[in-house]
Design a protein around this nucleic acid. Structure first.
Lengths: 344, 344
DNA sequence: GTGAAAGCGCTAACAA
DNA sequence: TTGTTAGCGCTTTCAC
C-alpha cells in the first residue's frame, strides 16, 4: 500500500508540460513563465509532489545538510547551543546531521568519513579538537569547517569562541576587588583552548595586581575529577584554605560548590567565593545562584552560521578566522560582591 | 583545487573490472570472488574511494537516516536520551537527522515534510504529540514511526515510555508510608501522556489508601509556571500548607525546591518532602539530592531502536505497540524516608 | 521560455 | 561470479 513517490514526471504529465519545466519551477534561480509556473504548482499541489532532495543533491552536489560533531553533551551549554544552531540553520534551509562522539581520535576520524559520505555541505565541530589530518580531509573534499567553542592553533580554520581570556581576567579582577587573598583555580582539560585561555586570562589578571595563584587543581571538565579536586583543595586547615575559587566551567563549579557546602560545611560566599564559566541554566537556579561568565550562545551560533555560510557560498572575502564573542560577568550570589561594584 | 569525488568507475578502471563489480564489493549482500574483492579494495584504498551514500539511497530507497524530532530540550532528560539514541543508531549503521521544534502544530507538520524529503528510513518523535494527519502522512510514505516518552491514544503507533502510572503510584506509597498528611501535586502539561499517567498512578496510590490530594497546581513542564505554582501552593499558613509534594518532572521539582527553601525558608524534608520524576543528573547533585523516579534512558532507547528497526526491516511479527520500561524509585534525601523502608 | 537529451553515482536485473 | 544495461529523480546544457 506504500504509495510510490510522486516524481516530477508525474507532475509534468498532469500539467501538460515537460519534466524539465517542473524542475525549473522548483529551482530557485530558474526561469519559467507565470502560466507554466501556475500550471505546475497546481499539478504538484494536487499530487502532493515534493522534489526529491537526494536526487537534487546528487546532481547539484549540495545536500543542504550540515554535519555537527559534538563530544561533550554532559555540559548543558551544548544542548542549548545545539538547539539554537539547529534552528538557525533550519531558517537558512539547512538541516543538521548530528554525530555524538567521544574525543577519541579514531572515532572522530570515522565520523568525518561518514559525514563526507553524506555529502554534507559543511561541518561544525563543537568542543572537538581537530587533527590536521582531518582538517585536510575536509578541505580536500571541499567541505567548509567551523569550530565551535574551540579554536585551532594553526589558525587556518574558522573558529568561534567567547572572549575566554578576557572572561578569565574579569573574574580575577572581580575576586581581587572583593578583597580575596588566597585565590584558587580548578582547571579544565588542557587540550581545550577554552581552558587554556580562561586560565591565561585569569592569571594575567592576578599578575597585573602583583598576585599569584594560591592553589590549582585539575578537573578536566569532568564531574568526578572536579569533585576530587575540590576535596583536596578545601579539605585543609582554615589558614591555608582558599577563600576564592574560579572554576573553568559551571558544570565543575556546581560540583565544587556541593563539596564545599555539603561535604565540608563551609559557607558560600561567606567562607569561599566561587565563580564559574558558561552561565548554563542551573547557574541561575537559586540553590547555586552562581556568579559566572556568560557564553552568549545565540551570538556564537550566529557567528558560526555566518562563517559557515560565507564559506559555503564562497563569499570568502578574507574570512575572519577567529571570532570571539564578548563574554560578560554575570554577578549573582556565589561570590562576595566588592563594595560599590557596578557592572561595566 | 577541490578534488572532484572519486567514483566507482574510477575504481573499476584502476582495478581492471567493471563498475558493477565495484558496486558489489561494497554492497553487503552481494557476491564477488576473493580475487575481485581484493583488487577492488586495493584500488579503492589507493584512490580513497567511498561509495556515495546519496546515490545509493536514491536507487535503493534506503537512506540509512533516521529523523529525530525533539520539542523540549530544556528538560535534561532529552540531551541524555538524544546521545544514547544517536549512539545506538550509529552502531546499527544509521544516522540521525535532528529537528528541533516547538510543539506548534504547523511546525511539526513542516518538519515531517522535510524529513520525508530526505527520504528518512524512520522517524522518532520525542516528547511530541502526533496528529493523526501526520501519522498518516508517514504511513503513506512508508516511513516507520516510533514515539519516545509519549504514546498515542489511538494506540496504533509504536511508542516507548516508562511505566509512568506505576511510577506515580510508587511515589504515593512512599509518601504515605512516610506518614505525610497533606499531599500535593504539581502537574505537567496535560497534553502529555506522561503527565496524565504519572498523575493517574499517583492518585490511584492515594485512593488505595483512602486518601486524596490536598492541593494541586499546574506547571506545564515549564520553569516559570512551576515557580508560580510552588508559590501559590506553599506561601500559605502552616496548618494548610502541604507537607509533601510530588512534581511531574525533575525540572519543575528543582524550581519548587528552590522556592520552598530559598524564598520561603522552609526545610526539605523537615517541613516538606519533595519527589520528582526523571532522575536527570542534577537530581543527584548534593544541593538537590532529589528523591525521584528514574526513567531508564538506556533501556528506553534500546526499545525504541528495536521497535524502529523491526518496522524498517519488516520483522513486523505483531509489533508490540506500547512498550513501557520499568521505572524505579530512587530514594535520596529530599523526602522523608519511612521507618524500616527497604527498596523492592 | 521551453522541451529534448545527457548525465550525476549508484544498484539491480539480466545474460553470459 | 562477472559485465552489460537500464534505470532512480533530478538539474542542466543546448537547440528551438
Amino acid at each position: 500500500m506504500t504509495a510510490s513517490r510522486i516524481t516530477s514526471l508525474d507532475v509534468a504529465r498532469l500539467a501538460g508540460v515537460s519534466q524539465s519545466a517542473v524542475s525549473r519551477v522548483f529551482t530557485p534561480g530558474a526561469s519559467a513563465s507565470d502560466k507554466t509556473t501556475r500550471k505546475v504548482r497546481d499539478a504538484a499541489e494536487a499530487l502532493g509532489y515534493r522534489p526529491n532532495i537526494l536526487a537534487r543533491a546528487i546532481v547539484s552536489g549540495k545536500s543542504r545538510i550540515i554535519g555537527l560533531v559534538v563530544a561533550y553533551l554532559e555540559n548543558y551549554f551544548y544542548p542549548e547551543a545545539l538547539e539554537k544552531l539547529s534552528n538557525a540553520l533550519q531558517r537558512e534551509g539547512y538541516h543538521v546531521l548530528v554525530f555524538l562522539t567521544s574525543q577519541k581520535h579514531g572515532e572522530i576520524d570515522d565520523v568525518v568519513g561518514e559525514m563526507l559520505d553524506y555529502q554534507v555541505d559543511g561541518i561544525v565541530f563543537a568542543s572537538v579538537g581537530l587533527s590536521s589530518d582531518i582538517a585536510k580531509r575536509c578541505q580536500n573534499a571541499g567541505v567548509p569547517v567551523v569550530l565551535f567553542n574551540r579554536y585551532d592553533d594553526r589558525k587556518d580554520i574558522a573558529a568561534v569562541t567567547s572572549e575566554n581570556f578576557e572572561g578569565g581576567r574579569k573574574v580575577a579582577e572581580f575576586l581581587l576587588a572583593g578583597g580575596h587573598d588566597r585565590i584558587a583555580y580548578i582547571a579544565g582539560w588542557k587540550g581545550a583552548s577554552t581552558q587554556r585561555d580562561r586560565e591565561a586570562g585569569f592569571l594575567a589578571g592576578l599578575t597585573a595586581a602583583n598576585r599569584s595563584l594560591h592553589a590549582r587543581e585539575v578537573g578536566n571538565f569532568d564531574a568526578e575529577q572536579a569533585k576530587a579536586a575540590a576535596r583536596t583543595m578545601f579539605d585543609t586547615p582554615a589558614e591555608s584554605r582558599p577563600d576564592a575559587l574560579f572554576v573553568a566551567n559551571d558544570h565543575m563549579a556546581f560540583v565544587a560548590m556541593d563539596v564545599i557546602r555539603h561535604e565540608l560545611g563551609l559557607g558560600i560566599p561567606s567562607d569561599v567565593s566561587v565563580i564559574g564559566f558558561d552561565d548554563v541554566p542551573p547557574a541561575a537556579w537559586l540553590s547555586y545562584n552562581l556568579t559566572t561568565v556568560r557564553q552568549r550562545a545565540r551570538r556564537m551560533v550566529e557567528e558560526t552560521v555566518k562563517a559557515l555560510l560565507a564559506q559555503i557560498e564562497c563569499i570568502e572575502t578574507t574570512v575572519t578566522r577567529n571570532i570571539a564573542v564578548e563574554a560578560p560577568l554575570i554577578v549573582r550570589g556565589s561570590a562576595r560582591i566588592p563594595e560599590g561594584w557596578t557592572d561595566t
